[in-house]
């Protein structure tokens, strides 16, 4: 049968679900768990809008089968902060006006949070390269770089 049962932890909450084997992690989040903050931009692994963390690594949820998330810890944009208590990266995106329409923003934020955990970069050009997996059609790139660097500066201070 083309269905699969799995256990997955999303934003700290354990879920046991049965899904169509074709279901992507992205659609599991959006359709089954009603976590619509993670966006579907291409479903082709080519835009980064669906970026989430799986066991702390930034991955594309559109190219991950839900079944492959068995036993994993998934974190989405809803899991890192709320409007009343923004994550420092979310606050920096707001302060730096690092978005317009918002469709790529969840992916950008999740990518940036992961990047800030990585230690193999230092320069503005590094940030540009390491945030290039997240397309922004509104063109907020320079402000996204500002946001990432402002958080790094705070971390270092």
């Amino acid at each position: 049968m083309s269905r699969h049962s799995l256990h997955v932890t999303v934003n700290g909450e354990a879920h046991a679900v049965e899904v169509d084997t074709r279901r992507s992690l992205l659609d599991l989040l959006r359709e089954d768990l009603a976590l619509t903050g993670t966006q579907k931009g291409c479903d082709q692994g080519a835009c980064g809008a669906c970026t989430v963390h799986v066991d702390g690594r930034r991955v594309l949820s559109c190219l991950t089968l839900a079944a492959q998330a068995e036993g994993r810890e998934v974190t989405t944009v809803e899991g890192i902060g709320t409007a009343d208590e923004l994550h420092p990266v979310q606050q920096a995106f707001l302060d730096c006006d690092a978005f317009q329409c918002g469709a790529c923003t969840a992916g950008q934020v999740m990518s940036a949070v992961a990047l800030l955990e990585e230690d193999d970069w230092s320069t503005r050009d590094d940030v540009r390269e390491l945030m290039s997996g997240n397309l922004c059609r509104c063109g907020a790139y320079p402000r996204i770089v500002d946001a990432v660097l402002s958080v790094r500066a705070t971390q270092e201070a």
Partner: peptide, 18 residues
């Protein structure tokens, strides 16, 4: 800053399909 900014950075923004 954008009045709708908090919605967008937290993923709470409702697009049509949402």
């Amino acid at each position: 800053t954008r009045v709708d900014g908090p919605l967008k950075v937290t993923g709470a923004v409702p697009y049509a399909d949402d």
